[in-house]
Design a protein around this nucleic acid. Structure first.
Length: 518
RNA sequence: GCCCCCAUCGUCUAGUGGCCUAGGACAUAGCCCUCUCAAGGCUAAGACAGGGGUUCGAGUCCCCUUGGGGGCACCA
């Protein structure tokens, strides 16, 4: 039997990290077994559905390299893959259930029910709803419904427990008297999630439903729907939710706000990932560029392979040691048995570490190609990249070395190589206002005029010579050179930096720095 | 309130009754390297929620307690 799985996001405008992890598990399982992965858009709730909200989700998957065999863009034999276009199927199925005695129309108003529910809550009684027509004969139910449309409810059969054999949670039993007769179709014919998803999963021949644990409580109703429709119940695997960092609560945008640091805001601005007139506060409250979304990591220049590896390891493990593994290894070895039973907290620190590991392994040419869009967006380079510029970028990347964990790190370490320094007053005060620095900087500038070739190793040698001869602390002059030429205290090696700047530019900047009145 | 699920270092995890004096990774701290920042090397600190069973033997199986999470919709 070949397996068929699906991921069914609702179009919210962004791809959430928790969703990606679930999608990834589905995808890995499917690729492992050579099955078919279906992407379906669950937009039954019109209020949540914005037409432009789908593309960011598809973009996110494309970027991560998670592809689907059937769904939007690619089509397939079970389409359409958008629930709003399948409404007639849900109506059809619901009517079938009325005729077979598994469902009934219900005329009690939502207000009345919620009032009863509130009352029950107040009295600390459990509220399980059963509609008036649950014992009305099917033909009569149908006559009533045809005469006056209303909501249709699924009739929960009493007597035997509902059993779910979950691939991750094991056997879960629920007593039917604890499950209310839930609405499957609204009066206007729109289906509810619990019903639409079953009808679609049946129509799309889904064999394995891998989804977040929060759906486990919905599952009994869905199982009843399968049984009522007389379809085989698929395999369920409820994966534990992803929690917020160092937290026991589900990951949410609000919980991630603390990771919108000033550094992040600066990078987002530099990359022009947000409108220039936004305030810091607006950026920090952004809906789609939030540390709980995939797009956030994309605009900061995380490598997609690192995200896939990280999320693949969140809640699943290969063995007792392996952290970094090629995608092929993950696919070959993925199994639901090794998915943890308990929730896992998302750890941005570990993700960043992993991003660095992937960046280290990336061939230099790929790094150059990858960093160019980031330089461009920040206006550090223009649209044209000629050979000379490409060589320079290559040198910059080499100089950055392992400092570059994500592409936006280039802003931090190497911006000065593409534009004039922005002198940080603190750096100037600390490094340029020391005793003797001005004199030595001036004198060493004369040395720089004669250095040949103007390359890192030679520069380093000459600086050492200069300092040794005058018994001056090498570090002090070095730091001064850095601040004079870059404006800041952190960056690539001073010698690499000077060599890339070139002699004339280096001397010009030292001159500027010496004239600085800060 | 009711139902369901979960429980190993701060975090991700290994552990499927003896291989466990509980292993690895991130983060943390110290030292080394060093022109800053990274990277790298070495070291340290750090966990079986508690209580009962079962067993020759329990992190591992069972029960209870506690703690946490999710759900109880004409949301998905």
């Amino acid at each position: 039997m070949t397996i068929r799985t699906r991921f069914a996001p609702s179009p919210t405008g962004y791809l959430h990290i928790g969703g990606v992890r679930t999608a990834l598990f589905n995808w890995l399982l499917t690729r492992r077994h050579g099955g078919t992965f279906v992407l379906r858009i669950d937009d039954t709730d019109a209020e949540r559905n914005r037409p432009e909200a789908l593309q960011p989700i598809l973009d996110g998957f494309h970027w991560l390299g998670i592809d689907w065999d059937e769904g939007p863009e690619v089509g397939g034999p079970c389409g359409p893959y958008v629930q709003s276009q399948r409404q007639h199927l849900y109506v059809e199925a619901a009517l079938k259930l009325i005729d077979s005695g598994h469902a009934y129309p219900d005329y009690k108003s939502a207000d009345e029910i919620s009032a009863e529910r509130k009352e029950a809550e107040k009295a600390k009684r459990n509220y399980i709803y059963r509609g008036a027509h649950r014992s009305t004969p099917p033909a009569e139910c149908r006559r009533l419904y045809d005469a006056q449309r209303t909501v249709i409810r699924l009739k929960v059969p009493e007597g035997k427990p509902i059993v779910i054999n979950d691939l991750i949670c094991g056997k879960v039993e629920v007593q039917p008297e604890l499950v209310g007769d839930s609405v499957i179709l609204r009066a206007d014919g729109r289906a509810l999630y619990n019903f639409a998803t079953v009808v679609d999963d049946v129509a799309m021949k889904i064999t394995h439903i891998v989804r977040a644990k929060e759906h486990l409580s919905n599952t009994p109703v869905q199982v009843l729907a399968y049984e009522a429709l007389n379809y085989p119940v698929p395999q369920f695997a409820h994966v534990p939710v992803v929690n917020a960092p160092k937290s026991k609560e589900k990951l949410s945008k609000r919980k991630m706000k603390q990771f919108m640091t000033d550094d992040v805001v600066q990078r987002l601005r530099a990359a022009h990932a947000v409108p220039p007139d936004w305030t810091d506060e607006q950026i920090k409250n952004s809906e789609d560029l939030n540390p709980a979304t995939v797009a956030f990591y994309r605009v900061l220049g995380y490598l997609p392979a690192a995200l896939v590896n990280y999320f693949g390891r969140l809640g699943w493990s290969l063995d007792d040691k392996t952290e970094i593994m090629p995608l092929a290894t993950m696919i070959e070895n993925f199994s639901l048995e090794r998915v943890n039973d308990s929730p896992a907290s998302f750890d941005p620190d570990k993700l960043l570490w992993m991003a660095g590991e992937y960046m280290k392994q990336l061939p230099i040419d790929d790094k150059v190609a990858g960093v160019i869009p980031f330089l461009r967006r920040a206006n550090l380079i223009g649209d044209e990249v000629d050979d000379a510029l490409r060589r320079k970028i290559r040198k910059v990347i080499e100089a950055c070395g392992d400092r570059l964990k994500v592409y936006s790190d280039v802003y931090l370490y190497a911006s000065f190589l593409f534009r004039d320094p922005e002198y940080d007053p603190k750096a100037v005060k600390q490094r340029l206002h020391k005793d003797g620095i001005r004199e030595h900087l001036t004198a060493f500038a004369d040395v720089l005029k004669t250095i040949e070739p103007f390359e890192p190793a030679v520069l380093e040698e000459k600086l050492k010579e200069y300092c040794d001869a005058r018994q001056f602390k090498l570090g002090d002059l070095n730091h001064a050179l850095r601040v004079a030429t870059t404006g800041v205290m952190v960056g690539v090696s001073v010698f690499d930096g000077l060599a890339i700047l070139g002699r004339d530019e280096t001397l010009r900047r030292i001159g500027t720095a010496l004239g600085l009145n800060m």
